[in-house]
């Protein structure tokens, strides 16, 4: 459910950015990104249908289960797009949102590879798209930032705000996932636990606690933000830690 909500935000943002792009090559890239995001929305939505969500209940189900902090994360980004701020919009979309999605999908792919290979394969294709999107963000925006250094404080504030809501979303989702992760591990044990142990960014996903996995995920995403923002001349701002 959170994947659909996140991808819907990415679709709305990337399509909105097409009109704001100052040159045709950027418009063309963002048009292909719009298509990618639509495909992601479609495949994750289909996953919901496969899991039993009725088509007529799709919107109400998303409204009901989309994490409120993820919704706020999306609102911060979409406000920039609605205000016509191309540079902030691309940083929010192609570095913050895509950077988060890229790492979350990597984690999900690692945990699904053996237990749910169909879903893992879906995620692999999505990860390849996200890598291209992040690359565009870094390449195109670096030069625009150097032309408009006055934009930096506002963009840094947006990054900090989005990062806060991202961490709050992680906290909500992981705190509610304890039972399902335990169930997954039991299932893995029944299927042959020795072959299912997966190392991800230094954590053994088979034995790590929920808090440890959440911590590794948060550190990995924030580390990516710091590196990528640094490459385009933006100073990473540490978010406050959600209560």
């Amino acid at each position: 459910m959170q994947l659909v909500a996140g991808e819907r935000c990415a679709l709305a943002a990337s399509s909105g950015l097409v009109n704001l792009a100052p040159d045709y090559p950027s418009k063309h890239f963002l048009a292909t990104q719009t298509l990618d995001e639509a495909r992601h929305v479609e495949i994750f939505t289909q996953r919901l249908f496969d899991l039993g969500v009725a088509k007529e209940d799709l919107e109400s189900t998303i409204d009901r289960y989309a994490n409120p902090n993820l919704v706020k994360f999306a609102e911060v980004l979409l406000e920039k797009v609605s205000d016509g701020d191309f540079i902030a919009g691309v940083v929010g979309q192609n570095i913050v949102l895509e950077g988060m999605a890229f790492t979350v999908f990597e984690l999900l792919e690692a945990t699904s590879r053996d237990l749910n290979p169909k879903f893992a394969q879906t995620l692999s294709g999505t990860i390849a798209d996200e890598r291209r999107h992040v690359g565009f963000g870094e390449n195109r925006i670096g030069s625009l930032i150097s032309e408009h250094p006055e934009k930096k404080p506002e963009i840094e504030k947006m990054q900090q705000e989005m990062s806060y809501y991202m961490l709050a979303t992680f906290a909500d989702v992981f705190s509610a996932s304890g039972e399902s992760i335990d169930e997954g591990r039991k299932l893995a044990a029944q299927q042959g636990a020795d072959s299912l142990s997966t190392e991800w960014h230094g954590a053994d996903l088979e034995t790590a606690t929920i808090e440890e996995i959440e911590g590794v995920l948060a550190d990995t995403v924030l580390g990516e933000f710091k590196n990528r923002l640094g490459r385009i001349g933006i100073e990473y701002q540490s978010p406050s830690v959600p209560a």
């Binding site: 399509s15 963002l30 919107e59």
Partner: peptide
Amino acid sequence: ASGMVRLAPNHNSRIFMATQVADEAR
């Protein structure tokens, strides 16, 4: 078309408009 992605009233129309965005860009 890119502006209409956000206006689309349902899932199917949103997906279609996104494909139209790619077509028009091409």
